[in-house]
């Protein structure tokens, strides 16, 4: 299952924190900071999977290293879009590649909701951000992976505000969003 979903920017400033286990606020911050340190040092060619941050390694050391327990968070997946890092911490029962696609769907959903989404949209509408996530993941279990259903679900809860007008000049209009290498949901 999924243990946590985090979004932070290039400076490590959190934009969304969602832990599917109850965790002390200070521990949450430490974990975010550790993951940020790991992720910020990644070279260009690196894969989208992080080694476990020290906070998670220490506690999982007790079980045998070769076969991590299925309940133990053992996979940290991330994707980096423009100024934001999207992180998913999960157990080994999740499929790593599918999680990458899941993040992609999440970002696409945000893009659909905000029309050319950028970090500012997420800062000023963090409730919508949470709502979009709740449409996809409930209690650490994925409930929806189809883009249109996610967007529809969020919209049904009320109109999605755009960011305040004086806050920015709008997105930069990049086309060709996504990887387009057959990694996105083919069955969608």
């Amino acid at each position: 299952m999924i243990n946590a979903v985090l979004v932070f920017n290039n400076a490590g400033q959190p934009r969304l924190t969602k832990f599917y286990t109850q965790l002390e606020t200070s521990v949450q911050q430490r974990l975010i900071s550790e993951i940020f340190t790991l992720v910020a040092n990644r070279p260009n060619s690196a894969c989208n999977f992080l080694p476990l941050p020290p906070l998670l390694v220490n506690s999982s050391k007790s079980s045998t290293p070769t076969t991590p327990h299925n309940d133990t968070p053992s996979l940290v997946t991330y994707r980096h879009y423009a100024t934001l890092y999207f992180i998913v911490i999960s157990t080994s029962t999740e499929s790593p590649l599918a999680l990458l696609d899941l993040i992609q769907v999440f970002v696409q959903a945000l893009d659909g909701l905000f029309e050319n989404v950028c970090e500012l949209d997420l800062i000023f509408n963090f409730e919508t951000l949470h709502a979009a996530l709740a449409e996809m993941i409930v209690g650490g279990v994925v409930v929806e992976t189809q883009l249109d259903k996610v967007i529809e679900g969020v919209r049904s809860q009320g109109t999605v505000a755009k960011r305040p007008v004086n806050e920015g000049k709008g997105g930069m209009g990049f086309a060709g969003f996504g990887r387009g290498d057959g990694n996105i949901w083919a069955g969608r």
Partner: peptide, 21 residues
């Protein structure tokens, strides 16, 4: 500052820093 790159569209292709660790 208000002109920070926070407005950069997320559609931007994924990018990462270039230094080897």
């Amino acid at each position: 500052s208000d002109d920070s790159d926070a407005e950069e569209s997320l559609r931007h292709h994924e990018q990462r820093s270039d230094q080897p660790p």
